[in-house]
Design a protein around this nucleic acid. Sequence first.
DNA 1: CTCAGTAATGAATCATGGA
DNA 2: ATCCATGATTCATTACTGA
Lengths: 377, 377
Amino acid sequence: MGAIRPIREAGLARPQLALLPLDTILIGDCIAEMAKLPDKCIDMIFADPPYNLQLGGDLFRPDGSQVDAVDDAWDKFDSLAAYDRFTHRWLKEARRILKDDGSIWVIGSYHNIFRVGTALQDADFWILNDIVWRKSNPMPNFKGTRFTNAHETMIWASKGPKARYTFNYRAMKTLNDDVQMRSDWELPICSGAERLKDEDGHKTHPTQKPEALLYRVLLAASRPGDIVLDPFFGTGTTGAVARRLRRRWIGIDRETTYVDAARARIDATLPLDESAMLVVPERKGEKRVAFGLLVESGLIAPGCRLRDAKGRWHAEVMADGGLVCADGTAGSIHKLGATLQGAPSCNGWTFWHVEEAGKLLPIDALRQRHLAAAAAL
Amino acid sequence: MGAIRPIREAGLARPQLALLPLDTILIGDCIAEMAKLPDKCIDMIFADPPYNLQLGGDLFRPDGSQVDAVDDAWDKFDSLAAYDRFTHRWLKEARRILKDDGSIWVIGSYHNIFRVGTALQDADFWILNDIVWRKSNPMPNFKGTRFTNAHETMIWASKGPKARYTFNYRAMKTLNDDVQMRSDWELPICSGAERLKDEDGHKTHPTQKPEALLYRVLLAASRPGDIVLDPFFGTGTTGAVARRLRRRWIGIDRETTYVDAARARIDATLPLDESAMLVVPERKGEKRVAFGLLVESGLIAPGCRLRDAKGRWHAEVMADGGLVCADGTAGSIHKLGATLQGAPSCNGWTFWHVEEAGKLLPIDALRQRHLAAAAAL
DNA sequence: CTCAGTAATGAATCATGGA
DNA sequence: ATCCATGATTCATTACTGA
């Protein structure tokens, strides 16, 4: 940990290297296929198991179109207990074939990740981090019944508290503009040219993961030449990124449709030059501030009176950052401004003002204060 | 947007209100104290249980100073199994005293949150969201051995899949600048003046939560007058925010040091003015207006021509508030909109528009006028 | 060619009240 | 308990269409 170790000489520390089905996809049940591999031969495991979503009926968007749900047979389990048995069984094999200084990543959502985390701890894995993948463009909650489910969780674990796992701290810090990489990663979902499609335009796999996610995982917790196993290979994102980053890989999947697509995809992937592997600039967007944040942070108090510049309208700040007029008309700073003026839209930040020391201050000035305070932290 | 509803009358819908130890701290073990409360009396539970951190030796910063770790006796458990037994026991009591339409929040880190989530599911709670609290100013990983542990996780759950839990969708959307609130919340940790300190300057509680976090939780999942229980009260952040937001509260804690600090803190907290307490109303709670009522009251005349926003469909208003197309297709504003689009359903209020002074106005605007006129009476 | 407007879509546990 | 009518509800991104 910490210091960078030299890349191991291939073949020297790996007498069994030639015996392993490297850079290939094993077709079959992941537990049966893992059972064929020798003990302690894998450096890193990335696993994207079924989430056991338990979806109800059809879901329609506000525009009437239907959401294409994950309803594949492989995601269905009879009960939580059945899911737990499955999880314990594949984790047991995974632990056996993982080297003592290797590590495992498992991704999931709130439907399954708590079962997975418990199973990992029960199997004596040692959790190193839980990593939150914040989706920059998640599907909204169309019915307004909950918070937008905008993230998934990855658990990163070693085989025990004393294990000397690989963590490329410097590479992560460089990747993150020279500040420590945090446990929350903002990345877009897999779409556009990266998303595999059939001839008829349908997505090949319902849950294909973005390569950027695997890129960061492999860059953080493995080294060139390491052997990376993915027991739920799907369309082979792990294999494609492993090849790009010059790791060796083994994939396992039951569905030949996925396996065929993955093979073609990985064959078309070119390994990076070793010198190019650590240079990945990331852009950071302008920070957005909600008016409610100023209320939460105390820069403006609920009950405070706002007015427009000419004093034609007045409103009071509510607890959620909404505004309300004397006659009961209410809305966000933007909506209410638009309603009062009879305009289609309104920039509430410049429309509404607050009196401070006898002077009229646009609430945008408070936002600037908030940004300045946040930057000073 | 619409009229503001009055805050519910306390005591009216709650005959047992007087029997509960409202707005007080119960000193003792949380399971024993919860056992004294009647069935189904609590609207919302917020729980910040021990994390079972399992820290190793002392931790030092790069400058040689020692990190003040959580090493209190209450955070120690003999084994994961002991922690699970404890979790199951307190969750069982929590479930018993929670109303059928109530909801529970539990916060934790990767050390314990997977055990908690599994226990919640095993106790038949239904997870609604997992919420990630992204700390804007987390403690760095001083040794560079892992990713900066920059978040904690909250699980929000109802008593079952059919339960009608409280979720103030509009208030959350308003708080977030008119975009749906996501499952990841960025908030600073509790520090500065908000952080309680002893006379000697030591922090009173090692894991005091920021009020902004509880503010958002209570605003999202409870209503004024609701009864909020916190079985691991600590220094009373839940109570302070509940008082500020005019919720009733019950706290439980074993440590008198914390209880004394919490009492003083909450006593010094002022409830918000009722007017400031208001949030943007949920449309679901608004008084229903039948389209026919607008025809009756003369806000729209029979024979008036309506169209959709893009001008693809037109219809005429009939005397009973029904609509009819040129080809004779007829139905309610909702039915006809759905039929024409071939959609399973349609909100006629936002689908149909009327031309007024050369501008296109959704008929929902007419409904708002009607509501405003009715409120003014 | 660009640009503006329209359409499509993503691991989703997605409604409610009255008869 | 079920059925039915009412009516509430979306964000970021990519791809396509037409001028």
